[in-house]
Structure formats: C-alpha cells, structure tokens
Amino acid sequence: MEPVNITRVSEFLLLGLSEEPELQPLIFGLFLSMYLITVFGNLLITLAVTSDSQLHTPMYFFLCNLSFVDICFTSTTIPKMLVNIQTQSKGITYEGCITQMYFFTLFAELDVYLLTVMAYDRFVAICHPLHYMVIMNPQLCGLLVLLCWIMGVLNSLLLCLMVLRLSFCTDLEIPHFFCELNQMIQLACSDTFLSNVVMYFSAVLMGGASLAGILYSYSKIVSSICAMSSSQGKYKAFSTCASHLSVVSLFYLTSLGVYLAIALVTVFLSCSSVFYTLISGSMISPTLFFLKSVVIIR
C-alpha cells in the first residue's frame, strides 16, 4: 500500500476509552468532575498564594507555576474528549492533533522540570537554611522557571517536527482519547527510525536528567535530616518534603507504566493513560499534595 503524504491527511480518529453507548454518560461525568476539580482547585491555590503576602516565598512561587501547568496539562486533552462524547464524534483534525500533541508534551515536560526545581528548592531550604533566601532570590527563581519553559518549548517543538515529516497510510485510528506522540509515530507508514531515536533519546536525556537531579537532592536531604538531633526538627523537615516526594513517585511510576504498557497490552495502556492524566492532574495532583503540606506547616 502506498503511503499517503501527511499534507493530504485531514482527520484522525480518537477511539477513546470505550465504544459502549451505556458507558458514555458515566465516562463523561467522571472526566467532567475531575476536570472541574482540577481547574477550580488549582485556581483556588493560586489565588490563596497570591493574596497572602506570607506565602510570597520561592516554594509557593514554584507552586503557583505548577498549578498553572496542571490546569493547562489537563485542558489539552479532557475538553476535546468531552466534546467528542457529547457530539458522538471521534474525529480530530490533523492540525488539532498536532497542536494537542505539542501542548500535551510541553506541559508534561514542564511538570517534570518544575518538580525538579522544587526538589532543588527543598534541598537548599533543608541543607542550607541560613543561606536559603540569599540563594533562592527572586531573580534565580524567575530564571529557573524561564529555563523550564525554554527547554520545554524547544524539546516539544523538536518532537513535533519529527512527526510533521512522517507520512501516513489509511489507518488513522488512534487507540487513545488524545493525540499522543508515540501513537502518532506508530501510525506512520514512512521510516520512523529517526523519530523513534529522537523520542527515546529526548525522554532519557530530559527525564533521566530530571530524575537524577531529584534523587541527588533527596539524597542530600535525607543525610541532612538524619544528622539532625531534634526529633521535632526532623519531623518538620520531612513534612515539607513528603508531599513532593510522593508526587514525584506517582508522576514517574505512572509515566513509566504508560510507555511500558505499549509493549504489553493495549487495554493496560488505556488504563495507565487515564490514571496518569486524571490522577496526576486532579485530586492527587502535585498542587493538592502541596496544599496538604501548607496545612501541616502552618
């Protein structure tokens, strides 16, 4: 079968989670509820941090940025899925699919980078408490967030350009409820070797470097906590890091589950994707974990 040039592909089909008509209202209600919780929860966190001058610290500055990224992250996929369920349509235009893939990749990467920056922030706060405000000054905090955005934008752009050069056959069905990078590459009829190399190299380089930074920061944090003589000091130090560490574990484990599932079972892949998109972006999202930390600290 001759491949069709990508410029003539006008629409992809998102197969979603289930084709059973009786399950559609349940799926719609579940996703809509989770999405509203995510958006309004993160907006309330942002409002609380910006309106309270006592929370104008580096940790809460990064928290506000993470809240914004969480809202954008879920907004790239959930609204389109809700519209498709409501209209009983599975189609998404080629331009819409590429756009969704770009922003989904961008905000997923920003989550990783911001979690790494937060780990560094906790490292400085616990291991160098006397120099914390000097090291984590507003200029450095702004520079770190800007660097996260620059790396995310450039890397997401590179990955999308790899997809734009591919050609597709007549099979344009995506076994997801959103346009995901790996699934797009698998649909291509042209040679995908370079695209796969770039995708996995990017994942190992960016994700691996971020994970290494987080592990290094927490190795120093654990050493510093163990060296404390006061049990109350140990508890307070641990309470400021426990929520962040839980989110990091959740984020990386679910992300790993999504991509390992590709080689195992398609059904498991769908379940992992739902868990990753909803859970990491809603009630057990990074921002709500940190909200619990705020309650403990204050």
Rank of each mutant, 00 (worst) to 15 (best):
S167W: 02
Q183D: 11
N155W: 02
F177G: 02
Y216I: 06
L215Q: 05
C169M: 11
V198Y: 04
S217R: 07
L158E: 12
S167C: 09
Q183R: 14
V198T: 13
S210E: 09
Q186S: 09
A212T: 03
C160N: 13
L159Q: 03
E173W: 07
M184A: 12
G208D: 02
V163N: 10
S210L: 01
F193E: 15
M199C: 15
V153G: 00
V163K: 09
E180H: 06
L158A: 10
S219R: 06
T192F: 05
L181W: 03
S202G: 15
S210I: 09
M184D: 00
Q183E: 13
R165D: 14
L159N: 10
S156P: 14
L215P: 03
G208F: 02
L161Y: 06
A212Y: 06
D171C: 00
D191Q: 12
S156E: 09
E180V: 12
K220R: 13
E173G: 05
P175A: 08
C169I: 01
A209L: 13
T170H: 08
L181N: 06
L158C: 12
A212M: 03
N155G: 05
L194E: 12
T170E: 07
L215C: 03
L181E: 04
L164F: 02
S167E: 11
N182Q: 14
L172K: 11
Y200E: 09
L157G: 15
I185Q: 04
S219Q: 05
I185R: 01
V204H: 03
L194Q: 14
A188D: 01
C179V: 15
V204Q: 04
N182S: 14
L181M: 13
A209V: 13
L159V: 10
L194I: 14
L166P: 02
I174V: 08
G208K: 07
R165M: 10
V197S: 08
Y200K: 09
N196P: 10
E180R: 07
S195R: 04
Q183V: 07
M199Y: 12
S167T: 07
S190H: 03
L211E: 01
G208V: 11
T192P: 05
V153E: 08
S210P: 06
N182R: 15
L181R: 03
A203G: 15
I174A: 00
N196W: 07
S202A: 15
L154H: 04
C160M: 12
Q183M: 15
C189R: 04
S195V: 07
F178N: 04
L158G: 08
F193D: 15
G208L: 09
S190E: 02
H176D: 13
T192V: 07
S190C: 10
K220S: 08
D171W: 00
M206E: 08
V163A: 02
L172C: 02
S190D: 02
T192W: 02
R165Q: 15
I214S: 01
N182E: 12
G213L: 10
L157H: 11
L164P: 04
L164S: 08
L159P: 03
N182I: 09
N182M: 12
